[in-house]
């Protein structure tokens, strides 16, 4: 009988209506207005790659050892080096093809020093495929941050 009465007075529907009505309070809004509000990005986020320099000397940390290029088979990383007079490897070029990257972090894992890093920058869209092939200077300086104004 109770069920019948509940059904008669549309209690099931009214409960739903109450819920949606209560959600109109401004504090319930979950939207993040993206270009105006920057989302907080986690520390470990795997975004645009960066080739780190030593903070004080400014020299590259990369020892041109090559495991990052081997960590992933798509040949998206190409490391170029030459031998110095004392047979040490010196990094010359470093290209990173973002169009083939799936941001899995395997290259980062493979790096024995702290040179290659996937950073928190997530705005890596470019207008051309060529724009996604980043060279050494791009990787070291990082992409220019996009500024949104209104």
């Amino acid at each position: 009988m109770r069920e019948r009465l509940r059904e008669l007075f549309l209690v099931d529907l009214l409960r739903g209506l109450r819920l949606t009505f209560s959600y109109q309070r401004p504090s319930a809004t979950y939207t993040e207005q993206y270009p105006l509000e920057r989302p907080p990005v986690a520390e470990r986020y795997r975004g645009a790659p960066r080739l780190n320099n030593h903070p004080s000397t400014g020299e590259t940390l990369c020892i041109a050892c090559n495991p990052c290029a081997l960590a992933y088979t798509e040949n998206l990383i190409v490391v170029g080096w030459e031998r110095t007079s004392d047979r040490k490897k010196m990094l010359t070029t470093f290209t990173y093809d973002l169009s083939r990257c799936m941001f899995c972090g395997l290259c980062e894992d493979a790096c024995p020093v702290d040179a290659l890093e996937l950073t928190q920058d997530f705005e890596v869209a470019r207008y051309s495929r060529e724009g996604l092939i980043w060279d050494r200077s791009m990787l070291e300086e990082g992409p220019e941050p996009t500024r949104y104004t209104r």
Partner: peptide, 13 residues
Amino acid sequence: KVLAFMQARLGPM
């Protein structure tokens, strides 16, 4: 707008 507020959104902004 009303739909958006009921769905915890903001709607056209």
